[in-house]
Design a protein around this nucleic acid. Structure first.
Lengths: 213, 213
DNA sequence: CTCAAATCCTGACGGGGCGTCATTGACGCC
DNA sequence: GGCGTCAATGACGCCCCGTCAGGATTTGAG
């Protein structure tokens, strides 16, 4: 019989895709992340076990530990992922902004929109009484906080605004964004515009009334 | 032989103290709470185990479960305890207040003072990188939140202030208090007055700028 | 005082999740 | 095709969990 391989079982790669080793590695990492999202969503952070996550991927338990040291670390990876995707949006708002007011408005709006969009995919079926899992200070999350602080600093200076306690201000803004955002998610319809108006109004109104250090 | 009991091994109780059963029960409950505070302080919430807590009390492991169903439940009991002691302070501020401004100032000041005082006794030696354990929505904590909301409602009405989104406002105020309070605890000296001035300034200034629903 | 009932303390035990590691087979390279 | 490397595997030992039958102590009645 003719042995010409019209459709060879494994055609040679002419591109420069990484080898199979590398590909399964990223696939596994992604699979674990996806499974973790789902399991955390269904069981909550406390209720979830590493075994639950790994079971969903079909991998062996030991494989999990080739990628993450613990349940905690996967969770942080998910948070990091969110922060990493939010960072560029924040940067865009900083570039667009002409003063503190416009930056704050843009950043808040971006955050609430992001939250509303993410919320759909995180789809949490939270066991009664369990609070939101605490987002820990992962590198990427810390970076976002630092970026907010720095943006505030620059944009306030650009405005020739009187000095304020930047640490308190940053903490307060992030706190307001988080809590108002949380409440917003519980309402139907989710009104990102209303939440933005509230948070921005509060902070912009409060800014001139702050004590001068 | 004469059976007059000059110094009976167990003198009759003339008071109406509860019986020994009741006394050891409250003693045990308190011992577990104290041990839990210490263990959570040293190991952090995640690092602590029920065995760590019970070991510190000298009781048997099974005894723990006569009082609390889980590590989670003791932690909640500690939070509840804090909320229960804060509640009357909040109520006093409400009674004293003449308008929204004075209530907010009093309540914030009370909270920051409370925090500073509690901080000494909670004395946390937190493992690097671990975030503050999340305070869960225990009954007493929920009650405090509701009380803040109701106080806001009444005092704003008394002021003939224009209507606002009370849920957002309450959430935002608590968020600011929490985060600014956290930052305050990290500073030396702990400046409760400065923190109060900041939080009150922000919110009082922001209030007139809020969107009207 | 005595005794039985009630209470609850005790610690050993089965269950299960954790993280490890020796083994195995697939992959990449020559 | 052959060989060195590397990740996947899953059984294993460890530790913590929550339970429960047995025992010690307290209570109240006679």
């Amino acid at each position: 019989m003719s042995n010409i391989a019209y459709f060879p079982a494994m055609p040679p790669r002419e591109d420069n895709r990484p080898g199979k080793r590398e590909r399964t590695k990223t696939a596994n990492r992604q699979a674990i992340l996806d499974a973790a999202r789902q399991v955390f969503g269904e069981l909550g952070y406390d209720g979830a076990t590493v075994r639950d996550i790994i079971r969903l991927t079909g991998l062996a338990s030991g494989t999990f530990y080739n990628y993450y040291k613990s349940k905690e670390e996967v969770f942080d990876a998910l948070a990091d992922d969110g922060a990493r995707r939010f960072r560029p949006l924040l940067r865009v708002e900083f570039e667009k902004a002409t003063d503190f007011a416009s930056f704050l408005r843009g950043a808040m709006r971006a955050y609430f929109d992001f939250l509303a969009a993410e919320h759909e995919t995180w789809r949490v079926n939270r066991p009664a009484g369990e609070t939101h899992p605490q987002v820990r200070a992962t590198p990427e999350v810390t970076a976002v906080f630092a970026e907010v602080r720095e943006a505030f600093e620059r944009v306030l200076e650009r405005d020739h605004a009187p000095p304020v306690d930047l640490d308190y201000l940053t903490a307060a803004c992030i706190a307001v964004a988080r809590e108002v955002g949380d409440k917003m998610l519980e309402r139907r319809p989710m009104d990102t515009q209303g939440a933005t108006a509230f948070a921005v109004g509060l902070i912009l109104g409060g800014l001139p009334a702050l004590p001068r250090p």
